[in-house]
Design a protein around this nucleic acid. Sequence first.
DNA 1: GTCTATAAGAAGATAGAC
DNA 2: GTCTATCTTCTTATAGAC
Lengths: 215, 215
Amino acid sequence: MTKDGGTWEFMDTKHRILDEALTLFSEKGYANVYVSDIAERVGIKAPSLYKHYRNKRAIFDAIIDEMNHRFEQQAQALSISGTDPTADAEVYKNMDEEHLIKLGNDLFRYYLHDSYTKRFRKMLTLEQFQDQELARVYSQQYFDMPLSYQGMLLGLMVSQGLLVTGNVPIMTLQFYAPIYMLLTVCDREPSREQETMELLEGHIRQFDQLYGRNF
Amino acid sequence: MTKDGGTWEFMDTKHRILDEALTLFSEKGYANVYVSDIAERVGIKAPSLYKHYRNKRAIFDAIIDEMNHRFEQQAQALSISGTDPTADAEVYKNMDEEHLIKLGNDLFRYYLHDSYTKRFRKMLTLEQFQDQELARVYSQQYFDMPLSYQGMLLGLMVSQGLLVTGNVPIMTLQFYAPIYMLLTVCDREPSREQETMELLEGHIRQFDQLYGRNF
DNA sequence: GTCTATAAGAAGATAGAC
DNA sequence: GTCTATCTTCTTATAGAC
């Protein structure tokens, strides 16, 4: 779907516009991107772009709409597996420290390197104060939903005696917040990826020791 | 110094421009603020503004410069007390859970409500991807410096047996990251302040229990 | 140092041919 | 659907009087 797949040339123009606009918005912010910049990347002239979208704002809105759509699918998928605890419990049955590290690592790497996810997160970072709706979307995506989902996973591990706590939501916040903070460091300074990966592993290891067996 | 103090009218025009520009930049981002917007807030016309600053960019740069200046002072102050452990040790001598909660609360409230700090943080959030220099300033201010300073404080508490860990930097990350995450939630959704304050207290309480005495 | 008037240029968007 | 030509508006910045 994205440039990464190498299927770039096969996307239709309407979708290509969205893809290039997202890239530019995530790097420079909406106001610093000109319609002609987007058009140039797509390989057309600016006026042609208006055959696909009514105006510049409509491109931005379409990106948000597409993401909301992906989010809903995501939420549904999570919700389905979430309401079937036996399935999830099976996955996290024999979860030891190494599995937890792998879970955290995979989570981090996905958020860090998935092109669409990364560009959308950066764009939203730059536009989050523009209006309440965008603020809500940001909090939903990068605060409420992750805490809810990971809280479910960690809750399962608690119910299986792998972790011990009287307050799962706080435990989840303490698991997730450092991971997200390291992610944002990489977003603005990719050269610090190695350094943050090491902190990430240290964090998860220590988290497991704290909540895992010191009682 | 700021509008909050009610001494607004006594700031000279040059400083007033900086103050109003910072407010606007932090809300809408540099590119969405027009020179005439700044001038209007100051109570002059746009052309008059060019008697104080060469151009729009010079206003932004002056804000960064002023902040760098404050940061240096801050760093010096911290460094001085940091190299005199006896002074700091005295402060954190009888530190129990309630003191730790107060420390976290004060930290949070300061960052949350100090007008200058808040506006600068929000502005930098919106401009962090514009160039490497701004990315560096952001990471320095909201990642490296807080971890360094709080690591020193928590390290003191470890050396006094109030907290126990084999890895102070990771412990510090686990203390600070949730606090900063809650702060950013409030920055974009001030209506969630109450909710985040409760999570903050829960976090610090649980942090103290985890690192404090469960051995 | 502040004003009015205005230049200079950028950027979004439309018209109409192909 | 894409192009060239063009319009309109907005924004930065300057000129020069007071």
